[in-house]
Design a protein around this nucleic acid. Sequence first.
RNA 1: GUCCCCAUCGUCUAGUCGGCCUAGGACACCGCGCUUUCAAUGCGGUAACACGGGUUCGAAUCCCGUUGGGGACGCCA
Length: 529
Amino acid sequence: MRSKSGTNQFVASCFLIAAGRHRDNFSEAMSKVRVRVAPSPTGDPHVGTAYQALFNYVFARQHEGQFMLRIEDTDRARSTPQSEQAILSSLRWLGLQWDEGPDVGGPYGPYRQSERTPIYLEHARRLLEAGHAYRCFCTKERLERMRAENRDKKLFPGYDRHCRSISPDESARRAASGEPFVLRMKIPVSGECVMQDLLRGEIRKDWESIDDQILLKSDGFPTYHLANVVDDHLMEITHVIRGEEWISSLPKHLQLYEYFGWEPPVFCHLPLLRNNDPARSKLSKRKNPTSINYYRRAGFLPEALVNFLGLIGGSRAEGDEKFTLDELIRTFRLEDVSLGGPVFDLQKLRWLNGRYVRENYDTSRLRRALEEWALGPEMLERVIPLAQPRLETLSDWGYLTAFFFADAVPFDPAKLELKGKTREDLVTVLQLAVWRLEQAREFSAQGIENIFNDLARKFELKLRDMTRPFYIAITGSEASTPLFQSMAILGSDLVRMRLRRALEALGGISSKKLKEMEKLFESFYGPLA
RNA sequence: GUCCCCAUCGUCUAGUCGGCCUAGGACACCGCGCUUUCAAUGCGGUAACACGGGUUCGAAUCCCGUUGGGGACGCCA
């Protein structure tokens, strides 16, 4: 249970201006509020990112501070420019415009971590020379073995500091001889780390339970921990408002601030969005649409989505649950955010969205919104060539193309079948297709066709037999416009959502079955990122 | 498993330093009204302080424990 008085005291010391007091003394300091959202461009733009961005944005606006966007693309294997683009455009769609970022620039750039490598190397060097970090030459195999053993013995599974005792001379010699290494930070071996969280007050954690974090990977790129601390300091971030999942690595971050001799920012860890399942686990794409693009393509309005995200944070504008961003900026109180992780409740989002549609749009404005969504010339000109050969009258258009302009489509589950195969087989084919489609960087008809051809070959199916259930799931019908082109027009998010619904209609997937399918997938295509 | 975080209706929450709470609102659900249908809308209803100990004249509100849930334990972020 959060200690209200303790928290309030702490909050008071940080936010006197927010309460409108002591303006004379502190307005100068408070005008320097600088916050950031720091997404990793490794996939679809996530609603969790929007959630974090929203709170940072609102907090910055309240204090007349700066809100910046920093791209954390230090994972070279998984970061893609497409993903970065998608994140930028989806946050912009939501109206959460940043003051500094990779696209708009700013005085603290570059804002893309992959362009800041020399900065991290320099800071890593400083830690190494000061004896706060050391080279680790352990192989992946050794680490895996060690972790597995310790886990079996129910011991702390962290790194055993095998290389911490190597002398600086030997370390330098081995590095010079070309032996691969990573850089690890020295974590205190005893004592307690005392942290302050804006929402929770004091948090304590034994240093014993924390291992020597890798700061520099063997590819020479920093890990999140190093890059994030260095950047937050150099970019003069005053408040780190981020997800709860980071609490457990806060000690590492604080220790880095200390090693560098820097003043740490105020930390505020927000609860994670949850799935709408009995377990209420962290919002995941397996169980929920998590991509902002899904909501956009499914016909949600950006102002409704933003309103909804603000609403479930539990810090809402006074009165009505429907409020604008400006109203949220006026009444929001960061320190009042609810600590229980909110379930992302689609039903309530739909209701709220409906209110915006009914209350904020007149006929012509709604017509424009529909055009912008999917009824514009660009979209229609993509659909028309597919429909034309199948039209006898113009009015055939309605039923033939309805699935392009829908979120979910109704279908008969009994028709979901794979010729000569079991239901289990069909589930496997659908799930592997979902995974392959997720990996596709460009969702083009040709790319989709390649994926399907390949899957058909792997499963020894005729393409036309394999695609049949996909027609049902995606278009709701056995007879429709061509599958791959239709999928490309529908877009990755709607396609995957419909396939997920089909999987549910087939009875869902047990975790055992899921494991089997992962194995099969990896035997075909390698690691499932 | 270990550590950390969290805990009010099915869901989102109100509950501002303990009394005005026989716990309020919203979504969802159910019923009734309005209506050519549906939706919208109006009215009404079902529904929660996880459990056990304290502290106190008095606890949803403070403390401890239990249980439950989540997160972390990566050369991912």
